[in-house]
Write a protein that binds this DNA or RNA. Structure first.
Lengths: 184, 184
DNA sequence: GTCTATAAAAAGATAGAC
DNA sequence: GTCTATCTTTTTATAGAC
């Protein structure tokens, strides 16, 4: 089997257990591969596995999320499309975000740069949509930050209260909030 | 030294490294205690250490945060006082939250109940303030959830972008947002 | 590409002296 | 209450056969 086959499984493991908690024993069991086979696909060990998962997600975001912000329709419609895609990514609030998991463990230093780059790009893309809709740059930037804050926060709280609907409600209200006081 | 001495140090370790990442070696180095001494104070090992940290935080919240929601002044003033206390707890956005760290690792099952209880109590307390100020119960409950979402989310993003000011800005805007459309 | 077997290192935990 | 020494288990990683 080509190594890409195992990426979704690795994503699942790392976002649930974190870098330290996703042990080779667990990974071996979940993928059905022996440890030696895992090192055949990922000679760099867990480090390389996480990088591969991040590559996969970067591609997914570039293909499915960011394009939803393009087009001729209104900012509100763009942001609603984006939220629909994000709901898929996090399975309607039932799945944690791997960036949060990586930021909050001992592997922070290893992956911080990648997480920072992704957050920045994402915030920038949303801010651009709002600037195009007539908002000033500073406010647009803040609302981009607010979007990531709301996504990450509602995923945490959904986990903490064991209630995915908290994520769903937040996501539903998000586009309206981001478009508040837009001239158009 | 009595064991309470080491609680703040343990809090620091667990919220930064998570349950798995806070190894006995690191704990030993940070506290200056040998492993055997750690087991003298905490016979249950790391599990008991985390429980002790959670006890400490529950007491801190009960003593410093929840009382700020009592009194005769306005909802806005109460929530502003609460936010000031939270800023201390998270050192103005430079420290992660231990509940998020515990939810996102392999120790989730061990501590989920405590995290859930804390979130619920906190949400309830804020909702009560808003109900007393005239808001309907459903909206008040949602705003309580929004408060935890904003706190947790902005701490994550502040970590991810290495910029504590994101937390500070969110916290500053939070009381106004929670009091939106209040009759009084 | 996958396996069994094994090694090497790290982590959790305990015994017993001081 | 703290230490050194030791033990057990887990985890990461590799060698080499198929």
């Amino acid at each position: 089997m080509p190594k890409d086959t195992y990426i979704p499984c690795l994503l699942q493991l790392f976002r649930h257990y974190g870098y330290d908690g996703a042990t080779l024993a667990r990974i071996s069991e979940a993928t059905g591969l022996g440890k030696a086979s895992l090192y055949h696909h990922f000679p760099g060990g867990k480090d390389e596995m996480v990088q591969a998962v991040m590559d996969y997600l970067d591609a997914w975001l570039a293909e499915h999320v960011l394009p939803s912000l393009q087009g001729d329709d209104s900012a509100l419609e763009k942001l609603q499309r984006m939220c629909d895609r994000l709901s898929e990514l996090y399975e309607a609030g039932r799945q944690p975000c791997i960036t949060a998991t990586l930021l909050l463990g001992s592997a922070r230093d290893l992956f911080h740069d990648r997480v920072q780059a992704r957050y920045s790009a994402w915030i920038r893309a949303v801010a651009q949509v709002l600037v195009d809709a007539g908002l000033d740059l500073t406010t647009a930037q803040q609302r981009g930050e607010d979007m990531v804050i709301t996504i990450q926060g509602s995923l945490i709280v959904a986990q903490g209260l064991d209630n995915p609907e908290i994520f769903q409600r937040s996501l539903k209200q998000l586009p309206q909030q981001l478009c508040q006081n837009l001239g158009t």
